[in-house]
């Protein structure tokens, strides 16, 4: 019995699967997010041709512009992963650098989205103009909110790190932010192809 209890002595850092709680929780959350975006994408796909008297997707979409902002978001995934890699090596300087660059690229993407929405609105594509416009704005808006939340989290983490207040493992915090950020990126990979590149 005593041997068993020696094994059983409480250690908060070991888990039954040997995996980190936070990481497991994060992947569960991302699995769940698949169904959220799946629902929004399906709604858009169902309604994309229902333009009523409003503009059609092909009339308003500016493919060169969106291609560039898609490229920016894709590259932010690279800078993010470099940040995670630096964090794992305990390289604070490069962690700051890459995380800051990631946030900046993310902000560029969101800025582009704001510009795009404004341009669309000026071309007569309001939120309530047609089923196409409503479902388009809801889908891309949700994605934009996810990116914005990501930027806020990246910037906050930088601030908290500067004051060295990150509770728990710093590199794991950055890694979790990375998972979230890449997820937002892969959602955009799908949105860009299905929504922008396939003509209605």
């Amino acid at each position: 019995m005593s041997a068993d209890h020696a094994v059983a002595s409480h250690d908060t850092h070991t888990t039954s699967t040997g995996l980190s709680n936070v990481k497991l929780g994060m992947w569960l959350f991302l699995g769940s997010e698949c169904l959220l975006f799946g629902g929004l994408i399906s709604t858009y796909m169902l309604y994309r041709g229902r333009v009523g008297t409003g503009p059609t997707p092909m009339q308003v979409f500016d493919i060169p512009f969106t291609s560039v902002s898609s490229f920016v978001l894709l590259m932010s995934s690279l800078t993010m992963v470099l940040g995670v890699s630096a964090a794992h090596k305990g390289d604070d300087r490069n962690t700051y650098l890459w995380v800051a660059v990631t946030a900046l690229l993310g902000a560029t993407f969101v800025g582009g989205q704001v510009y795009e929405f404004t341009a669309f609105y000026n071309e007569g594509m309001g939120f309530t103009t047609s089923l196409f416009t409503s479902s388009f704005y809801v889908l891309t808006g949700f994605h934009g909110v996810h990116v914005t939340v990501g930027i806020i989290m990246l910037m906050s983490t930088l601030g908290i790190m500067k004051r060295s207040k990150v509770p728990g493992s710093k590199s794991e915090t950055i890694e979790m932010l990375g998972l979230y950020w890449h997820f937002v990126d892969i959602v955009w990979i799908i949105i860009f192809t299905l929504i922008y590149l396939i003509p209605v």
Partner: peptide, 30 residues
């Protein structure tokens, strides 16, 4: 992106199971 940037290729298979379960379920039902 999922395999390399998100490390699923190198990480524990449980993470892949969870994520792809959500993904495949989403594709299926929708």
């Amino acid at each position: 992106v999922v395999s390399y940037f998100m490390h699923l290729k190198f990480d524990n298979k449980l993470f892949s199971w969870i994520f792809y379960a959500g993904l495949i379920l989403a594709i299926g039902v929708y």
